[in-house]
Amino acid sequence: MDNLFQPFALNDTIKLKNRIVMAPLTRCMADENLVPTQQMADYYARRAETGLIISEAVIIRPDGQGYPNTPGLFTPAQIDGWRVVTDAVHKNGGKIFAQLWHTGRIAHTHFFGGETVAPSAIAHEGTVPRMRELSYAVPKALSKPEIDQLIVDYTQAAANAIDAGFDGVEIHGANGYLIDQFLHYSSNIREDEYGVTPQNMARFPLQVVDAVTNRIGGDRTALRLSPGAYVHIDTDTRDRDVFDYLLKELEKRELAYLHGGIFDDSMEFDYLGGSISHYLRNSSNKTLIGVGGYSAESGNEAISNNQFDLLAIGRPLIANPDYVEKIKSGQALTEYSEEMLAELV
């Protein structure tokens, strides 16, 4: 396990004490005003032995909400609530990034009223998790002024995150949510400067990255991407051209890291030539976080093989708040079960 416990410098600003990352894990445990609770602060603080915690996805504005009780980062009370979390993590020697989130067409008006928004007026088929009585509706296709406002809102959320004590932010551009919806042909049928060509489809994600890095610094900004369509998005082989272009452009920009978005990294995509981590590693020189079903052993080996630089662990960290100590000492891990989602431990 030597690789996992080596310190790692993201850049000159942020140094990690090991290469184990807590993956973003939606827990739906904020209060009725989407404010983080003391229970959430305790939950994250217990996992501060990881090199980096990536928070559960955090809503940048009200119409980004697609799940019950997911925390926000757009009101003073939410900022104050997150400050309690970050203080608790820092007190225990950890570092934490906020994952900035807008769900796009995966949002539901049950939570906020008004309309859902997306690149194009194409509904996602299905129902809201945990609230299966709610079906997704056809979203409103965003206008150019509305896209401009979203860039402002992402930027303000990043500034709010720094104000709340986060060490940086991870822009959620994966898993079929708003930014990812711009990057896939099945969800983006626009015919303006935000659609049709790879350059146009990557325009909004790059504008968000540029605005956020200009506001808080590229050293504190990261990005999660799902080049392979596997959730909330249908496959289209033309997507490869979009991500080839996007990643080439990202090479010109400073970022703390790239993070693959996938539940199982053994999943391969013909049009990517393999797994998501394989494609990202071969397409970018950025620090890469690998995720998706790895154990400490397989993740350590993947780092040895230069498949990625940092290992994100998800469900095992729900089941084992002391995951790092157990791996260090060779103790058996508690097995994850879905019943554990009912409370924060």
Rank of each mutant, 00 (worst) to 15 (best):
P7Q: 06
R47L: 07
G93E: 08
V209A: 03
A77F: 11
A107K: 08
L10I: 09
A202N: 10
H278Q: 14
A57R: 01
S329F: 11
D63H: 13
L150S: 10
I171M: 05
A121S: 15
K252N: 15
N3W: 07
T213C: 09
N11I: 11
L344K: 10
V117Q: 10
H124L: 14
I216C: 05
R220K: 14
N18C: 09
R130Q: 12
V212A: 06
D12C: 10
Y279H: 10
E133N: 13
A141E: 12
Y230D: 13
T287N: 13
P227D: 08
I59A: 06
E56T: 01
L246S: 02
T116A: 09
I20A: 02
V291C: 07
R19D: 04
P24E: 01
V242I: 15
P145F: 07
Q6F: 04
Y245K: 04
T75I: 10
A57P: 00
S187H: 02
L223A: 05
Q156K: 14
L150T: 09
Q99F: 02
A57S: 08
Q331V: 07
R315M: 00
V89A: 08
H110C: 03
I303G: 07
N200V: 04
G261F: 00
G72E: 01
M267Q: 14
F8C: 01
T26P: 08
G114V: 09
D148Q: 14
G217I: 08
G176E: 08
H90F: 11
N214M: 13
A107D: 00
L134N: 05
R203I: 10
Y136S: 02
I96E: 05
R224S: 05
L311E: 04
I79E: 08
K328H: 07
P71D: 10
F204E: 03
L25K: 00
V212Y: 11
G114N: 02
Y194E: 03
F269S: 07
N175D: 12
N305A: 14
V84M: 13
Y279E: 07
S120T: 13
A107G: 13
S275D: 05
Y323C: 06
G66I: 03
P316T: 00
G218T: 11
V242D: 07
L225C: 01
Y271R: 06
R61L: 09
P76A: 12
L10M: 11
P119K: 12
G113C: 05
G104Y: 03
A302E: 10
D167L: 03
M22C: 09
M40H: 06
I233W: 08
N11W: 10
L183G: 02
F243P: 00
T86M: 11
F166L: 08
A118M: 09
P119A: 09
R46C: 06
A296R: 05
A77E: 15
V128G: 02
G165D: 06
S283T: 12
P24G: 04
A88C: 11
D265I: 06
K15I: 11
I171H: 06
M131L: 15
D80W: 09
G261L: 00
I59F: 03
Q331M: 14
H232T: 01
R83A: 14
E338R: 15
N69A: 12
N160W: 10
P7H: 05
Y136I: 00
A157I: 12
F263S: 14
K144M: 13
G94C: 11
P7G: 01
V84H: 12
Y336L: 12
N285R: 15
I106L: 14
N33Q: 15
I122M: 07
L150K: 13
L142Q: 02
